[in-house]
């Protein structure tokens, strides 16, 4: 009955926000997905919100600069050809295109006003 759930390889935990969840695959190839390839080594699981057992969900990966494990949430990391945790993005903000810079500024102000 529960074959679709696979067995967890371990628990993924984001080093920044501490979000955690068991993961069932690690790598660039989610199981049973044919043509889909991930462009980074990812921690992932079966998408828990989809009834379809083939659907996967990427939880996070390692920052290409500092190798910290981070989740894919927009408050922790971003992907721009590679995965960067937000602290690394901030450190190298000027190498990123303006769109991303603007986004980050916006995010900061939202965080400030909300907290």
């Amino acid at each position: 009955m529960d074959l679709n759930e696979g067995s967890a390889l371990g628990v993924f935990r984001c080093k920044l926000c501490e979000l955690s969840s068991p993961y069932t695959f690690y790598g660039q190839k989610p199981p049973n997905t044919r043509a889909i390839v991930l462009l980074e080594e990812c921690y992932g699981m079966k998408d828990p919100f989809s009834p379809d057992r083939e659907k996967f969900l990427v939880l996070g990966s390692k920052c290409s600069l500092c190798s910290k494990t981070v989740c894919v949430g927009p408050d922790c990391s971003l992907f721009y050809t590679k995965r960067f945790c937000l602290p690394c993005v901030r450190d190298n903000i000027h190498q990123f295109p303006e769109q991303i810079q603007a986004e980050l500024v916006k995010k900061k102000t939202i965080q400030k006003t909300s907290s």
């Binding site: 991930l38 992907f79 721009y80 590679k82």
Partner: peptide
């Protein structure tokens, strides 16, 4: 960091279909 010079939303996606 070797990032592409021109921004493209495509670079924000970590999935590919081939």
């Amino acid at each position: 960091l070797g990032l592409p010079k021109d921004y493209d939303a495509r670079y924000r996606i970590n999935v590919s279909v081939c």
